[in-house]
Amino acid sequence: MLSDHWLQRWLPLLREQAADMPVLEIGCGPGDDTATLTAAGLDVRAFDISADAVAAARRRAPAADIRCQDIRDPFPLGAGTAGAVVASLSLHYFPWQETLALVERVHRTLRPGGLLLCRLNSTEDRHFGATGHPAIEPHYYRVDGQPKRFFDAADLDRLFASGWERIAQEHLHTRKYLRSKALWETVLRRAATAGS
């Protein structure tokens, strides 16, 4: 696995928008992004389902509060208490209705005006499962025994249709996993309007 410095360009915005509130990182893996966030002076609360990944992340980012838990468990931060949420390639394991519910939980966890920075598998991600695998539902496949979701632009519009203001969205490729991986990178703000 190679280094992937995708967060660097967003650090000034994260520092400004998170202010003195913690950043929640969903699915921190071995701590690449966790280390970037803590080095930027942010208060990071992170989690991952893998005990091995959590141990590695704790070594890489000792200043962060890192837990081992499932994404479906209650988040380490309560409603309205996160200045930002970072979720890099960690929201793609679930059926569509469960994915919508997960994004709604993220929305509730953010303060009004808080940021969500996420990367999502693209339907063009040919090297990592977007084609040639048994379909569970549209854009959701069983890839080597693991359910895995892929997103197109219309999916992102539906996923973030309510209560979000889109700051940026790009279709990109990373070589973090050696072969080129297609993904969406999107930055959104929790709308501060009533009822959002």
Rank of each mutant, 00 (worst) to 15 (best):
L2M: 03
S3F: 02
D4A: 00
D4P: 00
L7F: 01
Q8G: 11
L11N: 10
L13C: 06
L13H: 02
R15I: 03
A18Q: 07
A19N: 10
M21V: 00
M21Q: 08
P22F: 08
V23H: 03
L24E: 03
E25W: 01
P30Q: 08
P30R: 10
G31R: 04
D33M: 01
L37Y: 08
G41C: 09
L42W: 06
V44W: 09
V44Y: 10
F47T: 07
D48Y: 05
D48L: 07
I49A: 14
A53D: 15
A53H: 07
A55T: 03
A56K: 09
A56P: 15
A57V: 04
A57R: 08
R59D: 14
R59Q: 14
A63S: 15
A64F: 12
A64G: 12
I71S: 07
P74M: 01
F75N: 09
P76Y: 03
P76V: 05
L77Q: 02
G78M: 00
G83F: 02
A84E: 01
A84V: 04
A87C: 14
L91C: 12
H92W: 08
P95D: 08
E98H: 13
E98N: 12
T99A: 12
T99Q: 15
T99I: 13
L100E: 14
L100F: 15
L102M: 15
R108Y: 06
L117K: 01
R119M: 03
N121R: 11
R126E: 12
H127E: 14
F128V: 14
G129H: 05
G129D: 14
T131N: 14
G132H: 10
G132C: 11
P134Y: 06
E137Q: 10
H139W: 05
H139E: 11
Y140V: 11
Y141C: 08
R142H: 05
V143P: 15
P147M: 06
R149T: 04
D152E: 05
D152N: 13
A153E: 12
A153F: 02
A154Y: 04
R158E: 06
A161Q: 13
A168L: 09
T174A: 03
Y177R: 00
Y177W: 05
L178E: 05
K181I: 01
A182I: 03
L183H: 01
L183T: 01
E185I: 00
R189N: 05
R190Y: 02
A191E: 14
A191F: 03
T193V: 15
T193K: 14
G195Q: 14
